[in-house]
Design a protein around this nucleic acid. Structure first.
Length: 749
RNA sequence: GGGCGCUUAGCUCAGUUGGUAGAGCAAUUCGUUUACACCGAAAAGGUCGGGGGUUCAAGUCCCUCAGCGCCCACCA
């Protein structure tokens, strides 16, 4: 026995060495896996790693994700699958840009505009590079058996090509279009954001009931009087008799120095019970009102700019921030005696989740994806949808889940998924930031000046061109200018399952590993990401991106609170690995964590599993201490033979079954108790007397030794997906004839 | 406003097709010439949130109430 076993297990002494040995073996890459003993062909099994954002470091949530996926991967690799786990990172456009912006501002008091697009982007790239290296190190520390040779980045060359190809196809199919409509404008981040990047916050607000001026026949209610400068209509319910006589008429009014022309319209969306039953319609600054205005053909009048300042009204409000303007207006209305009622109400305010800025709905020219437009799906491998059939993105997204081609675990999220699709509005994909994939559209402005005698050519000359590289006008030689916006980061993430495998090229990887088997991620990005992958894969490949979606919960602190810097309750995975080892950290994130349930984590829990790791170490020590080489040839005596067989068999069956059904928590718990309560507490204790007793016959001793050894081998295999480091370490000290790696050993059956 | 989840031992959670409750951690007592004190042994701890129903039998199925949490939503 190696003297190393005389001391308690020290993860730090082994983990990095073991990881290096795995890497050097090349077995993380499925192409290098050794042939199976029974000459069976390896079936592919693949997972793509949800790419962590290059915004900084990994947290416990990432650690949980890595642990879960590594268990699935190692389990399947041991079962003889051609197993690919493809890693990568996400450029995370807005998140990364705002992080770097604020860092630069703190240090140098400069904005991105001071630096300019090119210099600023260089700074972001430097930051992303650094972040990337940190993340890679952390992924390794967790023992993740990812194939580094296939590592991808959402912003690298291959992925950029994929983004361009996807954009082009959607643009040509008319699914991507440019249009001016009210969108979520974040005045703090100075960009639009999609509906999913906003959240609601309950706030107390004042609801004012007033008239634009004393001659206006109808009183309206609002919490935002300042937007009323942009009103072009008043809407009432069609069956509201109080206002029926006004419907269809237009009234002029003067409000805060602004001349208003208000048309009264009847719309069934209006709630007769609320306020006065009449709504001032502000098409430019409210989503609801935009819709009403569209239905009744009311004009659009913008009165607030990108900085949330008033652009209309008299000098007392013009140029003021909306909040300030609101107070001034209310004060004025009070003085004029126009306010009929003021009441406190609870209101949910839309917030940009990245910056915390209050969303200002503004009409802007943006790029959108239409999820309801019909198109022809050229090639389909989806059961129930024929190639060439007419579908919409929404229908495609729903179909694959409804028909069970994709199953979502836990199942309850399926309903949530449908609900999200049903309420999906056009997806705004353009962002007014610099970091990300620039929109591959070029504009020819001003338009060619007609050359006398050659006027016809000008009509051929396009103003808007889709191109990867800078085009030039064939007629006037003018250089086209590229759209300054970048794409929503989730556009490229949506392509992740196949862009990572080389799409749009028809690669072997794509053929072999797509659709992937499992998509494992947090339930908080079901809409952001999972749904978008289903959309993109369905549309571009006519296929599903994965067969199973496994959603894990959030990792919280021991009191159930979210881990956050401000609460100071963050448990850093690297600290825990340093103190208790990667194996203990992994176990603490698996046991007690069922799919979709949040997990409460405490340092104590991690320490508890460190004890288990050491227990296993000592089991190995005992067995190796009492072991002779020739025991391997021993014939079993009947008692030894039968003693543990049933227990081992049961453990193998249960662990296997539980991993297969994604109950990793139960599988880990099962093997934990098998090893501690059955193997250590019963078998070893029972065998001890035979080994220690000087009267024991030689063959009986050998038989006992052999049996213990065999049980240890099975235990190591069963434990390996959950605690790869210590099991591989012990494996390396076993007296094997050929030195092999446990990670590619065959799973017991 | 709509939808979903949770409520089981002090804490964190299991409990698969219904058959009078389990684990880890913590706490208690005892035990270190023993593979392991990062250990072992023992004992303790629950009217399974309340109420009602179905059933021979309910933590498990149904109804209802309460508390907590989450998601979605253009009532200004």
């Amino acid at each position: 026995m190696d003297p190393i076993f005389l001391k308690p297990y020290d993860p730090k002494a082994h983990e990095d060495t073991i990881y290096k040995r795995w890497e050097e073996s090349g077995f993380f890459n499925p192409d290098n896996l050794p042939p199976l003993k029974k000459r069976k062909k390896r079936e592919p099994y693949s997972i793509v790693l949800p790419p962590p954002n290059v915004t900084g470091t990994l947290h416990m949530g990432h650690a949980a994700m890595l642990a879960i996926q590594d268990i699935l991967i190692r389990f399947n690799r041991m079962r003889g699958k051609k197993t690919l786990w493809l890693p990568g990172v996400d450029h995370a456009a807005i998140a990364t840009q705002s992080k770097v912006e604020s860092d630069i501002y703190k240090k140098e008091k400069k904005t991105r505009h001071d630096l300019g697009r090119e210099v600023f982007l260089k700074r972001v790239e430097e930051f992303a590079k650094e972040s990337h290296d940190t993340i890679v190190n952390q992924i390794k520390k967790m023992g993740s058996s990812v194939d580094w040779s296939r590592e991808a980045f959402t912003l690298d060359e291959v992925r950029t090509k994929a983004v361009y190809t996807a954009f082009k196809q959607m643009y040509e199919d008319g699914l991507i279009y440019r249009s001016a409509r009210v969108c979520n404008w974040d005045p703090k981040g100075q960009t639009t954001v999609s509906d999913d990047e906003t959240e609601r916050e309950e706030r107390e607000a004042m609801l004012y009931t007033f008239r634009y001026d004393k001659d206006f026949p109808i009183a309206i209610s609002t919490t935002r009087p300042e937007t009323k400068l942009g009103d072009t209509g008043v809407a009432v319910h069609p069956s509201d008799t109080r206002y029926a006589k006004y419907v269809g008429k237009t009234f002029d009014a003067s409000f805060m120095g602004e001349k208003l022309s208000i048309k009264v319209v009847a719309d069934k969306e209006v709630d007769m019970e609320f306020g006065t039953g009449a709504v001032g319609v502000t098409p430019a600054h409210s989503f609801t009102d935009w819709d009403i205005a569209t239905r009744h053909d009311l004009p659009l009048k913008q009165v607030i700019n990108e900085y949330a300042q008033m652009t209309a009204g008299n000098d007392s409000v013009k140029g003021k921030k909306v909040k300030v303007a609101r107070n001034i207006i209310v004060e004025e209305l009070r003085k004029a005696g126009l306010i009929e009622k003021e009441e406190k109400v609870m209101q949910s305010v839309l917030i940009a989740e990245r910056t915390g800025g209050v969303i200002e709905p503004l009409p802007k020219l943006q790029w959108w994806i239409d999820t309801e437009k019909e198109f022809k799906l050229k090639h389909s491998r989806i059961n129930g949808i024929k190639s060439g059939s007419t579908v919409t993105l929404k229908r495609l997204m729903k179909h694959v889940v409804e028909k069970g081609h994709i199953s979502i675990l836990p199942e309850r999220f399926t309903k949530i998924y449908y609900h999200w699709i049903d309420n999906l509005r056009p997806w705004c994909i353009s962002r007014q930031i610099w970091y990300g994939h620039r929109i591959p559209i070029w504009y020819h402005e001003p338009r060619c000046v007609p050359i006398p005698g050659r006027e016809e050519e000008v009509s051929e000359c396009e103003m808007t061109v889709l191109s990867e590289t800078q085009p030039k006008c064939a007629h006037c030689n003018a250089i086209y200018i590229q759209d300054t916006d970048t794409l929503d980061t989730w556009f490229s993430s949506g392509l992740w399952t196949f862009s990572t495998l080389g799409w749009p090229e028809k690669t072997n990887d794509l053929k072999t590993y797509h659709p992937t088997d499992v998509l494992e991620t947090g339930y908080d990005i079901l809409f952001f990401w999972v749904a978008r992958m289903i959309l993109m894969s369905g549309y571009l490949l006519g296929d599903i991106p994965f067969r199973t979606v496994y959603l894990h919960g959030l990792v919280r602190d021991e009191k159930g609170r979210k881990m956050s810097k401000s609460l100071g309750n963050i448990i850093d995975p690297l600290d825990m690995i340093e103190k208790y080892g990667g194996d203990a950290t992994r176990l603490s994130l698996i046991i007690g964590a069922a799919a979709g349930n949040d997990l409460r984590l405490s340092e104590e829990k991690i320490r508890g599993y460190k004890h288990f790791v050491n227990k296993l170490w000592n089991i190995a020590r005992f067995i190796l201490e009492n072991y002779n080489e020739d025991a391997l040839d021993a014939r079993f005596n009947d008692t030894d033979q039968k003693f543990m067989d049933k227990e081992v068999q049961t453990a193998v069956e249960r662990v296997t079954k539980n991993i297969e059904s994604f109950r990793l928590d139960l599988a880990a718990d099962e093997v934990y108790h098998f090893v501690w309560d059955k193997f250590a507490a019963v078998e070893i204790e029972f065998t001890k007397s035979a080994l220690k007793n000087p009267g024991t016959k030689d063959w009986a001793r050998k038989s006992a030794q052999r049996k213990l050894y065999d049980t240890l081998v099975v235990s190591l295999k069963l434990l390996h997906p959950f605690m790869p480091f210590v099991t591989e370490t012990i494996w390396s000290y076993l007296p094997q004839k050929e030195k092999t790696l446990l990670m590619v050993e065959e799973w017991p059956a």
